[in-house]
């Protein structure tokens, strides 16, 4: 059986011990908080990537994204070609008084034009000032951190794999083209004068050596 009154002493000890320890208060306005990676502060727009596909505006559950655009025709790239039309972004605004920070717009953007930024200090005194236009959204893009590193032994990100595949394919194509060019050039090498031959060897010595 415990000593009578030991609970009272224990209670006093707990409060006294807590007093000697550092407080856990976050001194927020004086020192900024250490936010965890992938913090959802505000949605930033990388407008160079935006193609005005409207997917974000249509998927938004509370319809807080406003997009205006117009079409421009681009003159044909090659003479005799067809004119192309292109969407040009006029207005991109997010009403953060409606936004519920679900992040669906960011997930759904196929061109990586929307990002989470950890910036969270954008309170306003008027609710109407919470609709932020594209310039402000573009500014927030500068606060988007680089993505945190993957876990060790994690699966390679899909886009990296896709990029490597493309790069490998391009390299293979180029090598093939080189080989063909070399094969075309080989028979004529004896007939040609000395000087162009040395010239070419200097120009792509590495590939010439490899093939």
């Amino acid at each position: 059986m415990p000593v009578p009154g030991s609970g009272l002493a224990k209670g006093l000890a707990v409060t006294l011990r807590t007093m000697t320890r550092r407080s856990v208060t976050a001194h927020y306005p004086d020192t900024l908080p250490q936010l965890p990676p992938r913090s959802r502060g505000v949605i930033a727009l990388f407008e160079e990537n935006c193609t005005v596909c409207m997917l974000c505006a249509r998927e938004c559950p509370d319809w807080c994204i406003y997009i205006d655009s117009h079409k421009e025709t681009v003159p044909p790239a090659a003479p005799g070609g067809r004119e192309r039309s292109r969407n040009v972004l006029d207005r991109f605004a997010i009403d953060f008084s409606l936004c519920m920070y679900c992040g669906i717009c960011i997930d759904v953007c196929p061109f990586d034009a929307l990002f989470w930024s950890p910036e969270f200090e954008y309170a306003e005194t008027d609710i109407r000032d919470l609709t932020h236009e594209r310039d402000k959204l573009r500014e927030w893009m500068w606060t988007v951190p680089e993505p945190p590193p993957l876990d060790p032994a994690a699966e390679e990100p899909k886009e990296v794999g896709a990029a490597r595949k493309t790069a490998d394919k391009l390299a293979a194509q180029q090598a093939e083209a080189e080989a063909e060019a070399e094969a075309d050039a080989e028979p004529g090498a004896g007939a040609a004068s000395e000087a162009p031959g040395t010239d070419r060897e200097q120009g792509n010595g590495g590939q010439g050596g490899a093939s």
């Binding site: 409060t15 006294l16 807590t18 007093m19 320890r21 407080s23 856990v24 208060t25 001194h27």
Partner: peptide, 13 residues
């Protein structure tokens, strides 16, 4: 102040 620190807070600052 004492009460705040006993509760892990800092009290008026």
């Amino acid at each position: 102040k004492a009460m705040a620190h006993m509760q892990g807070r800092v009290g008026p600052m």
